[in-house]
Amino acid sequence: MRQPERNPNREWANEHVEAFVDDALSSDEKERFEALLAAGIGEADVELARRIRDGLHALPRPALRPEISRFVLEQARAEVRASRRGWLRQFVEREWASLLRPALTMAVLLVAVVLAVLIGRPPVHPQEAISQADVERALAEARWALAYVSHVSRETGSSVRNEVLEAHVVRPVRHALGAVLDERSETELK
């Protein structure tokens, strides 16, 4: 039995007929295909492919019900969220020991120090709370306190002078001088 003779152009045309009908060939391929059509090769195939395409386009398209599209979108979003959480969990687990724990420790320490400083700060008394009368009264009291200390110091000083210097320095010196003077007077009289 004799085998039909192979025609490479026909085979190429058969392989590319769908792309030609869908206008998906490059310009060179398109030129080649059109040259073959002009030569009477593949016209019937092109016609058949066009009829099939038009027939498919003529079929009614089933519309997706809204609840199904919502469900699909929700599923897609849930999957994205799950994948993000998984990434975050993996990141936390991976970085916890090396980065996050020391960082968290430092943050807690910092908060502790700030709290300590804030708690430890002496209460600030607003100067507005101190009236002019308070200031004048305090000024009078300060003057009085200084005057009192000054007075007591002078009193103490005079006591020291009277009791110590008078008794232990002035009187002995006066007594010694008196004795010397008396002795000299007696000598002169003789």
């Binding site: 420790t105 120090v113 709290l115 430890g120």
Partner: peptide, 23 residues
């Protein structure tokens, strides 16, 4: 590390309380 952190926290708070007294 958390125990050390807690110890620092206590020390810092005690220091702060001491400082709270009028200078």
């Amino acid at each position: 590390q958390f125990r050390i952190c807690l110890a620092f926290l206590v020390v810092a708070l005690l220091a702060g309380t001491a400082k709270a007294q009028n200078t």
